[in-house]
Design a protein around this nucleic acid. Structure first.
Lengths: 187, 187
DNA sequence: TATTTACGTCAACTATATTGACATAAATCT
DNA sequence: AGATTTATGTCAATATAGTTGACGTAAATA
């Protein structure tokens, strides 16, 4: 009967009567530059994840699978608890996608040596390949960006992103990066 | 019966036998720095949207509502088609959240003057307030970040984010930002 | 032995998205 | 004026990713 909320759609716009412009919102929020950054961040992330999404479709996987595979590949031997802490989702939610990755042979679980209750997660060769392909797509974007940027701005990107992380989380992220790095160096 | 895929969970890890380390993945992908940026971007976005999510809960809204309200507030008089193009979702998907925003009185739709088929979207005063509060939260994060960063790195952030956007989309984004800016300047 | 920990699982539910088909009113073309 | 296209709304079915809550089990620990 009535379409949406407005039955016969109200009267003309009378734009001049509208005081809530972007400039006012920006002024109230502090400054317009920060607002612009908010939108740029949204668009940048949208396109950034788009790359991987297209590849994942070929495997019948989604972003959730990507995140799990990525961190398992990045940090082989990861426990379930550590993964939950990184992803900040519930175990039930993780379990559904993890189960599919295990069944499809992209990830393997092995009992912990020190604590046999733990399930240590490892990528299979197949899983490592997919993880590498996905990572290649996304780091290719970063490399292109770095090439486009003036050299002086290049180092700023990682400093900027790191500063964007909750201060309480930064140490954990730093530890994760370091751990992944030494795991690689040890080979 | 059998838990997950592995019945009685296989044998010990034998870490040394695992060749798929982070370093190898990074090497294959090009370089480790780019991989690190990929992860930093993930963590930064996760925390960035978390701010707004917490505020939205009080209103029973989710991220989808936030995005709609944000762009309507940022660019008053936006048409449905323009919004769909920005969000890159289907009209059915947009309609559900838009309907809720209209019913709850955060957004108003008015018939277009030039083309009465179009529904021009405007924030109500209430909607503008919420949009401003959400934007304030997120731009506050950016302002804090800018304060933490060396002055030389500050300008680099927006250049970096802009470069992260698909090249085919950049002109549209530039136009959107300019439009939002002049909409404000006109008041 | 009792308890805690690390994990798995079933079930019901929510939010956000999709595809496909169809409806309507206004604009535009012939 | 009549036919077509455009802008939008709507119904229905489905997928993905997440949630809470309750319960189960094996291994570690007090």
């Amino acid at each position: 009967m009535d379409e949406l909320v407005a039955g016969k759609i109200p009267e003309p716009p009378s734009v001049a009567a509208w005081p809530n412009t972007a400039a006012e919102a920006a002024a109230a929020a502090g400054d317009g530059d920060a607002l612009e950054l908010v939108e740029l961040f949204f668009f940048a992330y949208r396109d950034f994840v788009g790359d991987a999404d297209r590849l994942l479709e070929n495997y019948g996987f989604g972003r959730a699978h990507h995140r799990v595979l990525h961190f398992v590949n990045r940090r082989p031997g990861l426990t379930i608890a550590a993964l939950l802490d990184i992803l900040k989702i519930t175990k039930q939610s993780l379990n559904r996608v993890l189960k599919q990755l295990l069944e499809a042979g992209f990830v393997e679980a092995r009992a912990g040596v020190v604590d046999r209750r733990q399930r240590l997660l490892y990528p299979t060769p197949k899983g490592a390949t997919l993880a590498r392909d996905l990572a290649a797509l996304q780091s290719a974007r970063f490399r292109t960006v770095m090439d486009e940027l003036p050299p002086a701005a290049r180092g700023a990107a990682s400093k900027f992103l790191f500063a964007m992380i909750d201060s309480g989380e930064r140490e954990r992220v730093r530890a994760h990066l370091a751990c992944a790095k030494t795991a690689g160096a040890a080979t």
